[in-house]
Amino acid sequence: MPVLAMIGSLVGALVDLGGPGHYVHWGFIQISWGNLIVIGLMAIVFILAIALPFPHRGGDDQ
């Protein structure tokens, strides 16, 4: 808990997301930048997870 208290009091938020929200309007679709970034990251991470080679290949035979 003391560690948490220290971190908590030192940094409230380095980046303040509390201002007026920013939104993307695209036809009837409206989405906040926050959600768009999260969903975009999900797509990117999914693609990377499939595309990037997995390290421990080629273990020995059973």
Binding site: M1, L4, A5, I7, G8, S9, V11, G12, A13, V38
Partner: peptide, 17 residues
């Protein structure tokens, strides 16, 4: 009411995300 509490809440929110 506590900045420590708010920080723990932030941990909770981001772990959910």
């Amino acid at each position: 009411v506590s900045s420590t509490g708010l920080f723990v809440n932030s941990l909770h929110l981001w772990s959910v995300e």
